[in-house]
Write a protein that binds this DNA or RNA. Structure first.
Lengths: 331, 331
DNA sequence: TTGTAAGCGTTATCAC
DNA sequence: GTGATAACGCTTACAA
C-alpha cells in the first residue's frame, strides 16, 4: 500500500496538517518538528500524491499543448519537437507537467481545447500556432482560461505571447544583401494575412527604403501556401523581364521551390535566403542560407510566461526570441 | 463557479450517487431518472472533474512518456514526433491523456521516471527506446509499475513491447538485392549489442545463407555510433581489397556516411540501403532507399498494449509492426 | 507552534 | 432503483 501523509504523521508523532506545513515550508513550524518530520518522510520514502494535492489546491500544475496534425508540415519542420523540448525543460524546472494532444483535423483542435479546459485537468494551455482570426484564441479568451501562444496574435496586448522579431529578422537579411552590393532583391512570401508574413514583408520594404532602393512590386510575390511548387511558380514570375541578383523568402519550403525554379531556367548567381532553418536547408544544392527562429527558446519562454502568469508573478506578457541568421552557400 | 455533481443532483432532484451512476452507465437505474439527469447535465453544461475522479478511482488515465534529449538524433529522426503522434491518437480514442518529459541527460531519465511513478500522476509509462541492460526497464520491473517499451528488450516475455521484425526486414532487403543479381553485399551496422542491431545482422546473414552465398567478414563492419563519419570510415574499410556491388546499413545516418565514402573514392554502381526512412533520405544524391519502420504505428500499438493491460483486458503482450521498404534510386 | 476538522469533487458501500 | 455517507490524500481555516 502507498505511503500517505497519515503514515508520516504517525511516524513523526504529529498531525497531518503539520506534515503538510513542513512540506510547504511553512515558516511557523519549529526546527525540531521540521526535522522529525523530514526524518519520517525519508524513512518511509514518502512522496506526496499529486492528484490529491491538485484536488485540494484546485491547481494541477499540468499544462496542455494542442498540436496540429498536418503531416507534411510536422515532419518537415523541426519546430514542433523543438518547441516541445523547450516547454518541457522550463516546466520541469518549475515542477510542472505537460500533456499534449494531436488534433485529428484542424477543426478538431477546438474540441481538444474544450476537452482540456472543461475537465479541470490543466491549469493553462499553450498554442503553437496562430491563425488569422484564430478561433482557438477567441474561445480561450471568451471563457477566460489562461493561455499563451507562440506567434503574435491579433489584439496582441490582450494575450500572452512569445514571438520572433520577424520585422527585424528580415530587415537584417535584406540589409546584409544590400551591403554585399545587391540592388535588385526579389521577395516571395506566403499567406499574406498572417502577422508573421506581414512583419517579414515590412522588414523587406524598410530595408530597401533605408538604403534608398526603390520598391518594385514586379519582383514581389505573395503566394497562397507554404509549398514548394508555389515557390517555383513565383520564382518564374519574378524572373520574367526582371534582372534579379537576390531573392528572399519567408520560408525554407518556398526557397526550395525557388531553387527549382532557378535551375529550371538555368539561372545562376542569385543569392537566396529561407526562413526556419529546416533540416533540409543545408542539403540543398547549393546549401540554403536561412533564418533560425530558435523554436526551443520560443517554447521555453512561452511556458515561462504562462507559469509566471498562473502563479501571479507576471513580469512580462510578451517576449521576443532572437533569430539567428545561418549563412550558407546560397547567400 | 464551476458546476459540480452536486449542482446536477439538485437540478435533477436526485442524489449525487445517482448522477454518478448515470455517468458511468450503471444498468440498474430507471430510464426516467437517467433522462432527467441527462437533461440537467446538458442544461448546466456539466463536465466531470478529472482530478476528483482520479482521486476516487485511484486512476488518472494519464500515461507518461520519457524522451531522450540527444539533440542530433532527435532532430534527424522523425521517429519521436511520429511515435508521439501515434500514441496521442490511440490515447484520445480511449479518453487517456499523455504527459511527456524530455530528460536533460541520459542519466536523468531514471529521475524522470521515478518522479512520474512516485507522484501517482500517471497510470503507466511508455519508453521509446531500449538500451542494453536497460536500467529504466529494470527499475520499472522492480517496482512493478505498468509500462510498455518500443523495441524488444532482454527478458522479452516479462515485458510489454512493440517492435518491428528487424530480422525479417533486413532479410527481405538482402534477398531483394540477391534477386537483382548482387553477390557481394557489404553490411554496416552500429552498436552491435542492441537487439535491433543483432536482429538486422542476423537477417543479413540468413539471407546470404538461404541463397548459398558465403558469408565474408571482410565486408562486414560494426561501428560504435549512429554517426555519419563513422559510416564513412566503415565504407572505406569495406572497399579495401573488396569488390562490392551493394551495401546494406542499419540506419540512414550510416548510409549517408557511406554515400560520402563512395563519392570520396569515386566508386559508382554500388547499391545502398538505409533504415528508418528519415526525411533526408530522399534528398541524397542518389536518393537513398530505406526501410520505413512506421513510427506512428509503433507508438499507437504501444499505447494500445499498455491501456489494455491497465484495464485488465490484455489480449497480447507484444506486437510486431510491419516495416515498409521504400525503394529509391540508390537501390 | 501545533492539532482538529472541514472541504476539494468524485466513486463506492451499504442501507432501504 | 435510489439515497446517505464514507472514503480517496491532501490543504487550510479555525482553535487551542
Amino acid at each position: 500500500m502507498r505511503i500517505t501523509i497519515k503514515d508520516v504523521a504517525r511516524e513523526a508523532n504529529v498531525a497531518t496538517s503539520t506534515v503538510s506545513r513542513v512540506l510547504s515550508d511553512n515558516p511557523r513550524i519549529s526546527e525540531e518538528t521540521k526535522e522529525r518530520v523530514h526524518e519520517a518522510i525519508k524513512k518511509l520514502n514518502y512522496k506526496p500524491n499529486a492528484i490529491a494535492r491538485s484536488l485540494a489546491n484546485n491547481k494541477t500544475r499540468i499544462l496542455g499543448v494542442v498540436l496540429p496534425n498536418e503531416a507534411d508540415e510536422l515532419l518537415a519542420n523541426p519546430f514542433f519537437i523543438n518547441a516541445m523540448k523547450g516547454m518541457s525543460l522550463y516546466a520541469q524546472s518549475k515542477n510542472y507537467y505537460i500533456t499534449y494532444a494531436f488534433s485529428k483535423h484542424q477543426d478538431s483542435e477546438i474540441d481538444n481545447i474544450k476537452e482540456l479546459t472543461s475537465s479541470n485537468l490543466v491549469d493553462g494551455i499553450i498554442l503553437l500556432r496562430v491563425r488569422d482570426q484564430d478561433q482557438n484564441i477567441k474561445y480561450l479568451k471568451k471563457i477566460g482560461f489562461p493561455f499563451v501562444v507562440v506567434g503574435r496574435p491579433e489584439h496582441a496586448n490582450e494575450v500572452l505571447w512569445v514571438d520572433n522579431n520577424n520585422f527585424q529578422a528580415m530587415y537584417k537579411v535584406v540589409n546584409k544583401l544590400i551591403q554585399k552590393g545587391h540592388k535588385k532583391i526579389g521577395f516571395v512570401g506566403a499567406i499574406e494575412n498572417l502577422n508573421m508574413s506581414k512583419d517579414r514583408f515590412k522588414g523587406y520594404k524598410k530595408a530597401l527604403e533605408m538604403n534608398q532602393i526603390p520598391y518594385d512590386e514586379n519582383i514581389v510575390a505573395h503566394i497562397n501556401e507554404f509549398k514548394e511548387n508555389e515557390g517555383q511558380v513565383a520564382c518564374n514570375q519574378l524572373l520574367k523581364n526582371n534582372e534579379l541578383s537576390a531573392i528572399v523568402t519567408t520560408d525554407d519550403l518556398i526557397a526550395f521551390g525557388v531553387i527549382k525554379g532557378l535551375k529550371e531556367k538555368k539561372v545562376r548567381n542569385i543569392s537566396l535566403v529561407g526562413f526556419n532553418n529546416t533540416q533540409l536547408a543545408e542539403y540543398q544544392k547549393p546549401p540554403l542560407a536561412s533564418v533560425d527562429i530558435n523554436a526551443d527558446k520560443l517554447g521555453y519562454q512561452a511556458t515561462k510566461l504562462l507559469i509566471e502568469n498562473l502563479e501571479g508573478n507576471e513580469k512580462n506578457r510578451h517576449y521576443i526570441v532572437e533569430t539567428q541568421f545561418i549563412e550558407r552557400e546560397s547567400f
